[in-house]
Computed example of a mutant assay.
Amino acid sequence: MNSAPNIEEARDEAQGIAVGSSFYAAMRILPRAQRDAMFQVYSFCRQVDDIADSDGPRDERLEALQQWREDIDALYAGNPPARVQSYAASIAQFGMRREDFIAVIDGMEMDVPADIRAPDEATLDLYCDRVASAVGRLSVKIFGLPDDDGILLAHHLGRALQLTNILRDIDEDADIGRLYLPRELLFHAGITSSDPDTVIASPAVPKVAAPLVKRARAHYDKADEIMSRNRRSTVKAPRIMSKYYRKILELLVERGFALPRDPVRLGRASKIAILLQYGIV
Rank of each mutant, 00 (worst) to 15 (best):
F94V: 04
I200E: 14
D224H: 06
L65G: 08
A269E: 10
I51Q: 12
G150W: 01
N165S: 05
I105N: 06
A209D: 11
K236M: 11
Y127G: 13
F257G: 02
F101I: 02
V281A: 14
D50G: 14
A26M: 02
D106I: 07
D50H: 05
S242E: 12
I226Q: 08
R168N: 10
R246G: 03
S54I: 03
A174H: 15
I176F: 15
L30E: 09
I7A: 15
I200R: 15
H155L: 07
A201Y: 07
V131C: 14
R11D: 03
S86I: 01
L212K: 04
L186H: 10
P196Q: 07
W68R: 15
S3D: 12
L30A: 09
L276I: 02
Q162S: 11
E8P: 00
P113F: 08
K243A: 12
S228N: 15
G158S: 09
P119S: 02
Q34K: 14
A160S: 11
L266M: 14
K243H: 06
N79P: 00
G136C: 05
P80V: 04
S90Q: 09
I51W: 04
A122W: 08
R28L: 07
A10R: 10
R246T: 02
I29P: 07
A218W: 07
D129C: 07
D71R: 01
Q34M: 07
L212R: 04
L185S: 09
D49I: 10
V140L: 08
A154P: 04
E63W: 00
R46D: 11
A33P: 05
I17T: 13
I166F: 01
G78P: 13
P211M: 06
S54K: 05
F23I: 01
H188S: 15
L126W: 00
A52Y: 06
R246F: 09
P263G: 13
R232V: 00
R239L: 11
A92F: 00
R217M: 07
V19G: 07
V104R: 05
E13P: 05
R46G: 12
P196L: 04
Y220W: 04
A237V: 06
V208K: 05
A118I: 06
K214P: 00
L62Y: 00
M27W: 01
Y87P: 01
I116T: 15
A33G: 03
T234F: 07
P203M: 11
T192H: 13
P57A: 06
I191N: 11
E70P: 08
P260Q: 02
I105D: 06
A134T: 08
T164S: 01
D73C: 05
L161I: 04
G150D: 09
Q34I: 00
T198F: 14
P81A: 05
V131I: 13
A10M: 07
W68H: 11
R229E: 03
A10S: 14
V19Y: 14
A52D: 13
S43I: 02
S193E: 13
L153Q: 03
L163N: 12
A114R: 14
I116D: 11
R69D: 12
F101R: 01
A18I: 00
P146F: 02
A134M: 04
R83W: 03
Q93C: 03
R117D: 08
K141T: 14
A273G: 12
L251I: 00
A189S: 13
A134I: 05
L186W: 04
I240W: 03
R246H: 12
A82E: 13
D50K: 10
